[in-house]
Design a binder for these strands. Sequence first.
DNA 1: CCAAAATCTTGATCTTAATCAATGTTTGTG
DNA 2: CACAAACATTGATTAAGATCAAGATTTTGG
Lengths: 178, 178
Amino acid sequence: MSSLKQIKTAIDKENLWANIRELRKNEYLKVGGSIDTNIYFVASGSIRIFVYSESEEHTIRFGYQHDFVVALDSFFTGQPSDLYLQTLSRTTVKVLHKSVFETWIHQDLEWLSLWNKALQALIVDHLEREQDLLISSPQERYQRVLSRSPQLFQEVPHKYIANYLRMTPETLSRIKKG
Amino acid sequence: MSSLKQIKTAIDKENLWANIRELRKNEYLKVGGSIDTNIYFVASGSIRIFVYSESEEHTIRFGYQHDFVVALDSFFTGQPSDLYLQTLSRTTVKVLHKSVFETWIHQDLEWLSLWNKALQALIVDHLEREQDLLISSPQERYQRVLSRSPQLFQEVPHKYIANYLRMTPETLSRIKKG
DNA sequence: CCAAAATCTTGATCTTAATCAATGTTTGTG
DNA sequence: CACAAACATTGATTAAGATCAAGATTTTGG
């Protein structure tokens, strides 16, 4: 059982959730320039994290059912960040406040160790992502992400996946066909 | 004082280093397919972390004087990883074994908290890096990294920086001129 | 269920950075 | 110091993916 799943179970048991939010398609949980230190758990639906740059959107990550979604930079630093969190469909999230989480996690060395493990797993994921992005062939980038996250292609519109893979929807479409 | 600096100071004080290695230019600390759970501290010189893919090298990160350098995926998972660690010049590193580090870090909640902070800072760095890589204009990618890490351009040959920025040395050269 | 909107596909053209090639410059070593 | 090797620059050409445009398909909301 992954560290994140264990953390989720414990949060449920101790009933730490602040509230539940229901969002329509395309609603923003967070916009650029704002502080958001919440942890969101996607009960249903899907969310996209992106930034603006060169007046274009760049997709950082997706979250769908059973994922945690967090504006990590704002969460860690407590500062405003450039990240946008937007729903891609009607979505329900459970909200956990950082302060509650922090208090809880520091109550027991066991929890802190678990959180440590979760952070480590996150870093390993980021390393993978970095390699995905460095690869020059769009074909290869597609293959790597497809084989690691086939589910993703079921869950979110491909135009966003194309953006996530730093290619146009047209290029992605042609790769899928080929 | 950053969490990493505090950790470094403590390791020095407790004398946890296993040994010191002197390496010539272009020597490998680690090659792809191997396990390496060491933490290296660059006393002098410089190191490049890269992977092979499509029979090309892709540069993940640089480490120079006073940086920690770690094959993070292998370090965290204990498994073999695709990362290569290679010196870019005559380099001296201090070596710290994971087991020693882990034992030490778990002795005190204070240390574990500090390590936690370091991991968080690392994740924020990775987020920045991800945004750097997503940007489509080579010009912009160059500008962002230059303004965040001007020192880098003093420390390592630009052909490696070009690779790190996912462009050719020719393109980087033209950007610098323009 | 139907209409409108959003998404996806396909083809033609254009643009930008990669490639190729040659020369100039710096660095490191005997 | 000299000379070779590594690195950087510059110009010409090519190629791959972006852009543009139109049509097909799917999704969504009243």
